[in-house]
Amino acid sequence: MIFDKQNNNTTIVTHEKGGVNDFCLRLEEVYDKLASDHLVVNLFSLDRLEAADLGALTGISARHRGNNKSFVIVTNKISPDEVPGELVVVPTLQEARDIIEMDEIERDLGL
């Protein structure tokens, strides 16, 4: 797991090896250190990904978004039609940054 802090309020967490469930367990272990940042979960290293794999991230995502922070998953290994509705999944890191920026604007406007 690689952590890359950007813009003083966003951390990109990059999956290196192992399965999504192991990644989620490790993310839970360090979550308190990341809770004040917007999170981008980069899953590009996975050769294959299924909707069921993303289910493991649903709880972390809901908790994080409940704290008024963005939680965006980056992967191009799954069709947007397969993504659970409570998750935000985009195919590129730039799109993840754009989502976070839009979320911040909405929060500033009270939407």
Results as ranks from 00 to 15, higher is better:
Val40Trp: 00
Asp81Cys: 05
Thr11Asp: 09
Gln94Trp: 08
Ser70Ile: 07
Asn7Gln: 10
Val88Cys: 13
Leu109Tyr: 11
Phe71Val: 00
Thr14Ser: 09
Asp81Tyr: 08
Asp81His: 09
Tyr31Ser: 02
Ile105Thr: 14
Ser36Phe: 05
Leu111Pro: 03
Gly19Ser: 10
Gly19Trp: 08
Pro84Trp: 00
His38Phe: 08
Asn68Gly: 11
Asn42Leu: 07
Glu16Met: 02
Lys69Ala: 10
Glu82Arg: 13
Leu27Gln: 05
Leu57Met: 12
Met102Tyr: 13
Asp98Arg: 04
Cys24Ser: 04
Gly66Asn: 06
Ser61Ala: 15
Leu54His: 05
Leu93Gln: 03
Val88Phe: 08
Arg65Val: 15
Val40Gln: 07
Arg26Asn: 11
Pro91Phe: 12
Ala62Glu: 15
Asp103Trp: 07
Gly66Ala: 08
Arg65Cys: 14
Asn7Val: 08
Glu86Ala: 11
Val72Ser: 05
Ile105His: 12
Leu46Asn: 01
Pro91Cys: 07
Asn8Met: 05
Asp32Asn: 02
Leu39Gln: 01
Val90Phe: 04
Thr14Tyr: 03
Ile105Trp: 11
Ala62His: 14
Glu29Arg: 07
Gly59Val: 06
Pro91Lys: 07
Leu34Asp: 00
Leu27Met: 05
His64Ala: 13
Glu86Phe: 10
Asp108Trp: 02
Ala96Gly: 09
Ile78Ser: 11
Lys17Val: 07
Asp98Leu: 05
Lys17Ala: 03
Glu101Pro: 09
Lys69Cys: 12
Thr11Val: 15
Ile12Met: 02
Glu28Phe: 01
Ser61Leu: 09
Asn68Lys: 14
Ser61Val: 14
Met102Cys: 12
Pro91Gln: 13
Met102Glu: 15
Asp22His: 01
Ile100Ser: 08
Ala51Trp: 07
Asn67Tyr: 09
Val13Ser: 06
Asp22Tyr: 01
Asp32Leu: 02
Glu50Leu: 10
His64Pro: 14
Gly66Ser: 01
Asp81Ser: 11
Ile78Asn: 13
Leu49Gln: 04
Glu104Val: 03
Asn76Cys: 05
Phe71Arg: 01
Ile105Ala: 12
Leu111Asp: 10
Glu104Ser: 07
Glu104Asp: 12
Leu49Lys: 08
Phe71Met: 00
Leu54Gln: 02
Phe23Thr: 01
Gly18Cys: 06
Glu28Asp: 01
Lys17Asp: 06
Asp98Tyr: 04
Gly110Tyr: 02
His38Lys: 04
Asp47His: 10
Ala56Met: 03
Leu34Cys: 01
Ser79Val: 05
Asn67Ser: 13
Asn21Gln: 09
Gly55Arg: 05
Lys33Pro: 07
Glu106Gln: 13
Val88Ile: 12
Lys5Ala: 04
Ser45Glu: 06
